[in-house]
Amino acid sequence: MRVRMTRRAAVAGLVAVAALVVGAAPASAAPGDASAYGVKLDLSLLGSDAVSAGPFAAADANGPTSNTFVGVDLPDILRTGVINASASRNDDTGGVHSRASTADVRLDLLQSITGGVSAELVEAECDATQTGVTGKSKLVGLDLGRLGTVDTEPAPNTTVDVDLLGVDIAKIVFNEQIRNADGSLTVNAIHITLLGGVLGSIGTGDLVVSSATCGPAGLPIPMASGEGLWIGLGLLALFGIPVAAVALRRRHDLRAV
């Protein structure tokens, strides 16, 4: 009976160690994802055909990890210079990073109301590490015309209402940060929404300039090599070897009797 119980203890100890090692293996949880793009729009303007375009210069951590587009030219809506986007994953740390930048942005969509919106550079950035997911936006040389001013690095979800004769017909969100259900974060440097169905409306739809999504971070330690391997071997030595040694010693004592 003692031999059987000791064997069970040894097996249980080794199984517990194996569970710890296997439970921390990369296969149990894929690393986080990341993506980015420069411009995307879906608009229905009064008196014009619907316009859907983008995402331009889309990048993804699964490939392509970087992308460039020479510029968007949509008369009376939007013109831009060069767009760059990138997304990457660090399999050693589990962290992911994404970034989108759009140069020489000119938003003519609301020009008759705002006097024009322009910026030298519009950037969105997102990082996911083991400590959390963070994002930010940068708006260099931003000119909002009659809408006032916004900081170069605005606070998350800074909103400016666009009105005509006291009625809101659109809203612009700068450094929009959306916490998604899967734990990821989407950062839109500029997001314009047209509010249809109101007096003076010019249409409906959305236009986004520079968007980055990332996270949550993936597993930080690959158990097959490096630090993870040494942790696994250390656990094995700490729990598995002493239990196995006790089992062998008891078997030897019983045979001697």
Rank of each mutant, 00 (worst) to 15 (best):
Thr65Ala: 15
Ser66Pro: 07
Ser66Asp: 12
Asn67Arg: 12
Thr68Ser: 15
Thr68His: 08
Thr68Asp: 09
Val70Asp: 15
Gly71Val: 04
Gly71Ala: 05
Gly71Pro: 05
Gly71Cys: 04
Val72Thr: 00
Asp73Cys: 08
Leu74Asn: 05
Asp76Cys: 10
Asp76Glu: 15
Asp76Ala: 15
Ile77Met: 07
Thr80Ile: 05
Thr80Gly: 03
Gly81Asn: 02
Gly81Tyr: 01
Gly81Val: 00
Val82Pro: 08
Val82Cys: 10
Val82Lys: 14
Val82Leu: 15
Val82Ser: 14
Val82Arg: 13
Val82Trp: 08
Val82Asn: 09
Asn84Glu: 14
Ala85Asn: 03
Ala85Gly: 13
Ala85Val: 03
Ala87Pro: 02
Ser88Tyr: 11
Arg89Thr: 12
Asn90Trp: 05
Asn90Cys: 08
Asn90Arg: 03
Asp91Arg: 09
Asp92Met: 12
Gly94Gln: 01
Gly94Leu: 03
Gly95Lys: 06
Val96Trp: 06
His97Leu: 12
Arg99Thr: 10
Ala100Phe: 04
Ala100Ile: 00
Ser101Leu: 07
Thr102Phe: 00
Thr102Pro: 01
Thr102Gly: 05
Asp104Tyr: 06
Asp104Ala: 15
Val105Asn: 00
Arg106Ile: 10
Leu107Ala: 03
Leu107Thr: 01
Leu107Trp: 01
Leu109Asn: 02
Leu110Phe: 07
Gln111Arg: 11
Ser112Arg: 10
Ser112Tyr: 13
Ser112Gln: 15
Ser112Asn: 15
Ser112Gly: 15
Ile113Arg: 09
Ile113Phe: 14
Thr114Arg: 03
Val117Pro: 06
Val117Met: 13
Ala119Thr: 02
Glu120Ala: 14
Leu121Met: 11
Val122Lys: 01
Val122Cys: 05
